[in-house]
Amino acid sequence: MMILEHRLSTKTKRGSGLYLRLLFLLLAAAPVAGGLLYGLAYSLGLTGALSSGFTLQHWQQVLASGVLLQSLGYSLYIAFTAITLATATALFLSLYFQKSLRNGSLSYLLYLPLTIPAVVMGFLVFQLFTKSGLVSRVAYSLNWIPGLQQFPDLVHDSFGFGIILAHTLMAIPFLTLLFNAIYREQNLRQLQEVSENLGAGKVYFSRHIAVPTLLKTAAPNLLLYFIFILGAYEVPLLIGSQQHPMVSVLAVQKFQRFNLLDIPQGYAISVAFTLFVLLLLSISFKKLQRHA
């Protein structure tokens, strides 16, 4: 009832609101919707330099060659592995370092990695883990390896070690701070006192109360982060494997081959990926709203 009243109260100044909504549509929805339509038209041969009327040929090529599905599968594998590792580590850190996160040295330090963008993280992981990187040099000077050839392939490898590592490293501080914020908001400290009062140990509390609460409350953010990694571009471009491009990289590749016939495929991949992400989003949007 009260909410209804609020809504009605704004109707008194209708005019300006309409322009604001139009501006919102123009800046937020129109680029995605318009781009999607244009991309769809291009991939169906309806527009573009080489268009010759409606055709499913480009979609067939993208789907039949398996290049899109392979790349999507690879991206899902990378995103899933990275988010799982990061979540596990962040859960451990936020519970284990509860005190120093609250007011100790870590309360400032943990914010620092948030100043590292994906490009820089890709560069960093490369400089650390490439065959001639810092880790290899330290290993050599400690006589662990006889030469740089013996250092394992950790970047540009098909398992995506480098990409997963870079994204895990970027996600850990963010998720740790997020869990820490939830820990405070949900009054988990008081709950722990209650639980200890009832005779439960620290580990029991963590396993049965803290972890489920943190995961449940953070679920929408974890999903958003998963989608971010799914569309990752900079890191796989820098340290990904040549044979297994992630979706964003694959899409851009199609535009940069200077083969005009590849461009409709690039659009098809972009459209397919966009629809996939929007589908994921709308499935989970109700949950997102509850926690936003």
Binding site: F24, A28, V32, G35, S248, A251, F255, G266, S270
Partner: peptide
Amino acid sequence: LLLAYWPFVLSPVVLAIMVQRF
């Protein structure tokens, strides 16, 4: 709000591909 999430969750480079014509 769902509309507001669109560009926000999409990979920026994929968005760029689709709007570059404009």
